Amino acid sequence: MNIIKLDATPSTNDYLKALLTKQFVENFTVVTTENQTLGRGQMGAVWEVETGKNLTFSVLVKDVLPDINTIFHLNVLVAVCLTEVLEELKIPNIAIKWPNDILADNKKIAGILIENSLKSGGEIVSVVGIGLNVNQKNFDGLPKAGSLFGIVNREFDKDAILISIVETLKRSVALLQNKDYGLFWEKYNQRLFKKGLPMPFEDKDGLRFMGIIQGVTANGKLEVLLEDDSIKTFEIKEIQMLY
C-alpha cells in the first residue's frame, strides 16, 4: 500500500490531484495528513479537525467506473465501506446521512468528498477524500459533531483504522468492477438515516415541510414522500434535514 504522509497540507484531495498531473500514480495511493488547513466537504462546506487527533486522507481510485452515469455508485460503495469498518470497531448506531455523512448516535463522525475527472480516453479517475473524527474530544460550537472517542470513550489507533478502510475499499472496488452494484445499494439503503420516518425538512428557499425519505436514486438524488402523497427528488444542497 502506497501511503504518502504529510505533516500539513491545505487539502489532501488537492495534493493528490496535483500529483496526478506530474507523474504516474499507483491505484489506491493514499495521501494522509495530520493537519488539513483548508479541508472541505460537499459543495464547499468546511471540514475542520483538531491536529493529530483524526484521520484526514484521500485515496486514488481509477479503472472502476465505466461511465459518468455510474459515478454515484462509488459514493455508495465508499459510504458502505466506512460503516462496515466502524461496525467492526463496535461503534454503535451507525447511519449514512444522505449523501455522504456518516453518523453514530446522531453525531456526524465522518464525511466523504469524491472528486471525479474524465480523461480524454473516457477513463474516470476519482479522488476519494475522507475525514473521520477519531480521538478528538472537544467540538465546541459544533453540537452535531462527534468522534469515535466521544461515542465509546476510548482512544483508537488511527493508522490501523486507515489501513482497514483502504483494504476494505480495495476489496469492494473489485466487486464494483464486476458491476455488482446491488449489494452496496442494499446496504446503503439499510443504513440510510431516517429512512421511512416522518421528519421536517427545509428547502434552499427556507421553506419548511414534512416528508418521509423513501430512498436515493441511482444518480444520487434523495427521494422524499411529501404530505400530498407525491414523491419529489432533491439534488445535494436543495434540501436540508432538520434533526
Rank of each mutant, 00 (worst) to 15 (best):
L103P: 03
S126E: 05
S147Q: 05
I94E: 01
N116Y: 13
N189T: 13
L169A: 10
L65N: 02
V80T: 12
I165C: 10
V78T: 14
I91E: 00
H73D: 15
G111T: 10
I165S: 12
A104P: 00
E155G: 02
I68V: 15
P198N: 10
N138F: 11
I94C: 02
E167F: 08
D101I: 09
G182W: 09
I71T: 15
L148R: 02
V152Y: 00
K187N: 12
L86N: 01
A104V: 01
A174C: 10
F149D: 01
I102S: 04
V64K: 01
N69G: 11
A79H: 06
V173D: 05
L148W: 02
T83K: 10
I112W: 12
N189K: 10
E186C: 01
I163E: 14
V128A: 03
I165V: 15
C81H: 10
V152D: 01
N178P: 00
Q177C: 13
L197D: 06
N153K: 15
D105N: 15
N135Y: 08
L118Q: 11
N153G: 00
K108M: 07
G146C: 05
I114D: 12
V80F: 07
F72K: 08
N106F: 05
V128E: 08
L169W: 06
I163N: 12
I68E: 14
V134N: 07
N106M: 04
L148T: 03
F184G: 10
L162Y: 03
V125N: 02
A110D: 07
L175H: 14
N69C: 02
Q136E: 13
L192D: 09
L132C: 09
I96Y: 05
D180P: 06
